[in-house]
């Protein structure tokens, strides 16, 4: 595909004071108090600005946002099936390529952004997401990760952590830890299997300027890009609504979440703690882990330790294993 159309160049934001005042994700939605994904939408919208088209697969950010006649989106927004966001975005992008080439649309290529939940990105939506990444469409796929099918009542997704109590993985006598599987690694799946992708990043609500700049960087790259954003969910993870940012921060401090960028093969890491806090401190903040025993928590710690040893990641490992129960 010839990629000759003119694209946008979004400036880097230097500090939180320089973040645009304008809101493009406006009141009129009915997300929960303390909703991580809603805050994510707000920040991403500030990053993209209005010259954008958003595709929203089914999920919390569809159901809780788009009550008919009451849309919070100040840019064109379209619902997609939970299965096909990557494909619909591909169609929109292909349309703009040809319309701009033929002179039927006069502007620059709009920022084409998918806002997919973990299910719509890496589970039921995986095929369409991968298709978009493979084919090289000039669009950004954001996976706002609240680690469950939250909209339908907190059912397990491939991103739900080991040990999570979800409504499909309740802990019981036979299965004491609740969820027994470990999550997928979404950005690594994109990086590892899609040669057209030049930029992949992870971001956290705890660091909004970093998040905004990663979104802008992703959009400035010509071609498909992927950003995985950690979005704590008070209702699903069972913590108080005013603790969303604290939980996000603690995820980074414990190694549950790692902020990094991958640009054409090169990794850079952000917000790496000097010393990792044991993961039990993170798990303590959320009731979804309250049933776990030392043995389970040690298993979780081992998983994190191994993950932190991932390629390209030279970090000091946590030395202590948790000894107390949560």
């Amino acid at each position: 595909m010839a990629k000759a159309v003119e694209t946008q160049n979004l400036e880097r934001v230097k500090s939180v004071r320089r973040v645009p005042q304008e809101e493009y994700y406006v009141p009129g939605h009915r997300t929960c108090q303390g909703c991580g994904p809603a805050l994510c939408y707000k920040l991403v919208s500030k990053a993209t600005g209005p010259d954008s088209i958003f595709l929203g697969p089914t999920g919390c950010m569809y159901v809780a946002n788009t009550s008919y006649l009451c849309s919070p989106f100040a840019y064109p927004w379209m619902h997609t099936q939970i299965t096909n966001a990557g494909a619909v975005a591909s169609g929109v992008e292909a349309a703009y390529q040809v319309l701009i080439r033929k002179g039927k649309y006069k502007g620059k290529l709009p920022n084409i952004v998918v806002m997919g939940g973990d299910g719509g990105s890496i589970d039921i939506g995986l095929q369409a997401m991968s298709g978009m990444m493979y084919r090289g469409h000039d669009a950004l796929f954001i996976m706002y990760d609240n680690e469950s099918y939250a909209n339908t009542g907190i059912q397990t997704s491939p991103m739900s952590p080991y040990g999570a109590n979800t409504t499909f993985t309740p802990p019981g006598k036979a299965i004491p830890e609740g969820k027994v599987l470990f999550p997928k690694d979404a950005p690594q799946m994109v990086i590892g299997g899609h040669p057209a992708v030049k930029y992949v990043a992870t971001a956290s609500l705890a660091y909004p300027v970093d998040l905004i700049n990663k979104v802008r960087k992703g959009l400035n790259v010509v071609g498909p890009t992927f950003i995985h954003i950690h979005c704590p969910c008070p209702k699903g993870w069972l913590f108080d609504a005013d603790k969303t940012i604290e939980v996000a921060k603690l995820a980074i401090e414990t190694g549950m979440w790692v902020n990094y960028e991958w640009e054409e093969g090169e990794y850079t890491y952000q917000h790496t703690p000097k010393e990792y806090t044991p993961v039990k401190e993170y798990m303590k903040t959320q009731e979804r882990f309250s049933h776990l025993t030392d043995e389970h928590i040690a298993k979780m710690q081992a998983f994190i330790d191994a993950k932190l040893k991932a390629p390209g990641k030279p970090v000091p490992l946590p030395v202590t294993s948790p000894r107390e129960s949560v």
């Binding site: 088209i53 595709l55 379209m78 997609t80 099936q81 299965t83 096909n84 990557g86 494909a87 619909v88 975005a89 591909s90 169609g91 929109v92 292909a94 349309a95 703009y96 040809v98 319309l99 039927k104 649309y105 095929q127 369409a128 991968s130 298709g131 493979y134």
Partner: peptide, 19 residues
């Protein structure tokens, strides 16, 4: 497309964008 499901999604996405 990566399958017929994607084909139709790509087609209606394009139609929605004006092509």
């Amino acid at each position: 497309g990566e399958g017929e499901h994607a084909q139709v999604a790509i087609a209606y996405g394009a139609a929605a964008a004006g092509a």
